[in-house]
Nucleic acid binder design. Structure first.
Lengths: 132, 132
DNA sequence: TCTAAGTCTAGTAGTTTGCTAGGTTTTAAT
DNA sequence: ATTAAAACCTAGCAAACTACTAGACTTAGA
């Protein structure tokens, strides 16, 4: 149940960009310096966020990243889901089989409930909420 | 944010024992058979649960495990926390340092809020609730 | 004393994590 | 047309973690 640094750094990048959303695109170099992180590593951190359509990319000279939507329109679920490739706590294929055999499968209830709690928190908060 | 099989199996063991709490101690062999899991692996799954005081152990012939308290008095947080060695989403030492430098550290708010959501769900539900 | 239980320790193949490194492509400024 | 600053892509790698298996040892009731 630990959160990977990839996801944590991804969130920091998104929050950093949320704080200066009006200012146009920002190069990774600036974000890396502000956050005290390796620019090279951030490239990889940012890739899935861009692939998920959360970032607008400007390539070439004076390029950089900008939030694709207003901070108010990007939820924490959007960010975490992109970084972690989904919010699922488990790959439920094998669990479905196990549940066939089990009687009522109470553990389904456990993890389903936890999943709901996580989803509803992350979906209910936006980047704007976090930045104030 | 995936849940390890160790934790999932641990929960299944605890739920299995909760369902037959009145019946005294149950050998791991029986649980392994019912759940379709390796008994040998379950030994390791169960170890941290016993160490956390959630299980009463009877060694020797006709021994086995039993819940140390009634299902109503064991929360999901107790179980997950024992299996995962705490509920923390991250080791915050390095984050504290980062937060000194950052201005207001909005990511603290993100993960703190998620942590609260997770904790309050897990602490609010007991094994009895899951078994019906 | 036999036997069915839990206990402890070690090993291990495979995967994931958290990076670093280097080269390629894109594009605005000169 | 060249340069420079940016994003993009791929590979590699040590360390840690995961999901087990295996075996020897201990405990205690029948």
């Amino acid at each position: 149940m630990k959160i990977s640094t990839k996801t944590r750094y991804g969130m920091r990048v998104m929050l950093d960009l949320a704080a200066r959303y009006e200012e146009g695109c920002t190069p990774l170099k600036d974000i890396a310096e502000r956050q005290g992180l390796s620019k090279k590593y951030l490239e990889q951190v940012v890739a899935p966020l861009a692939a998920a359509g959360l970032l607008t990319v400007t390539r070439g000279y004076a390029g950089g990243y900008q939030l694709a939507r207003a901070p108010r329109d990007i939820t924490l679920a959007d960010v975490v889901s992109a970084s972690e490739d989904g919010l699922e706590l488990m790959t439920c294929t094998s669990d479905l089989l196990a549940c066939e055999r089990a009687d009522g499968c109470p553990s389904r209830r456990v993890w389903g409930g936890l999943q709901d709690a996580i989803n509803s928190y992350l979906e209910g908060q936006t980047l704007a909420d976090m930045v104030e």
